[in-house]
Amino acid sequence: MRNILMVLAVVLLVSGCAGMLEKQEPVCSGTALIAGQETTVQIYGVRKVGSQTQYKGGDPFGWRWVSKTNFIRTTCDK
């Protein structure tokens, strides 16, 4: 009986977290100059911090918030 309750608890815990791992779609894209090469980067979020605009850049930025100045052009300002 105890094993059944333990299994049910684990199933409920896992099913409750199922929506947290959703695939995030990019909101726009940009071109960054990295090591002298133009690289296309998917952008997953845009935010303002004070007077600075930041983008949540995918690879090669590691899905971190970086300054708009890291990009030479973007499609975010439509």
Rank of each mutant, 00 (worst) to 15 (best):
M1A: 08
R2N: 08
N3F: 05
I4N: 03
I4F: 07
I4C: 03
I4G: 00
L5G: 09
L5M: 04
M6V: 12
M6D: 09
M6K: 04
M6P: 00
V7N: 02
L8W: 04
L8D: 01
L8R: 06
L8A: 10
A9M: 13
V10F: 15
V11L: 14
V11T: 05
V11C: 12
L12H: 03
L13E: 04
L13S: 15
V14C: 10
S15P: 01
S15R: 10
G16F: 09
G16Q: 08
G16Y: 09
C17I: 10
A18W: 06
A18E: 05
G19I: 04
G19V: 01
M20S: 06
M20T: 02
M20Q: 09
L21K: 04
E22W: 06
K23N: 13
K23I: 09
E25I: 11
E25K: 14
E25V: 11
E25W: 07
P26R: 05
V27F: 03
V27Y: 01
V27I: 15
C28R: 10
C28Q: 09
S29T: 13
S29R: 12
G30A: 07
G30Y: 00
G30S: 07
T31F: 01
T31S: 05
L33G: 00
L33E: 12
I34A: 04
I34H: 03
I34Q: 03
G36N: 04
Q37Y: 06
Q37T: 07
E38K: 11
E38N: 12
E38P: 03
T39H: 05
T39D: 01
T40E: 15
V41C: 05
V41M: 08
V41P: 01
V41I: 14
Q42W: 05
Q42I: 00
Q42H: 11
G45D: 14
G45A: 14
G45K: 10
V46I: 13
V46L: 13
R47E: 08
K48T: 11
K48E: 14
K48W: 06
V49N: 06
V49E: 12
G50P: 04
S51Y: 09
S51H: 11
Q52G: 00
T53A: 03
Q54C: 02
Q54H: 05
Q54E: 15
Q54K: 07
Y55S: 01
K56M: 11
G58P: 07
D59P: 00
D59Y: 12
P60W: 11
P60A: 08
F61Q: 00
F61C: 06
F61A: 03
G62L: 11
G62D: 14
G62F: 07
G62Y: 09
G62W: 04
W63E: 09
W63T: 01
W63H: 13
R64C: 13
R64F: 08
W65D: 07
W65H: 06
W65F: 11
V66A: 03
V66H: 01
S67Q: 07
S67L: 13
S67D: 14
S67F: 08
K68E: 15
N70A: 14
F71D: 01
I72Y: 07
I72C: 08
I72K: 15
R73N: 15
T74Q: 09
C76Y: 02
K78D: 15
K78P: 15
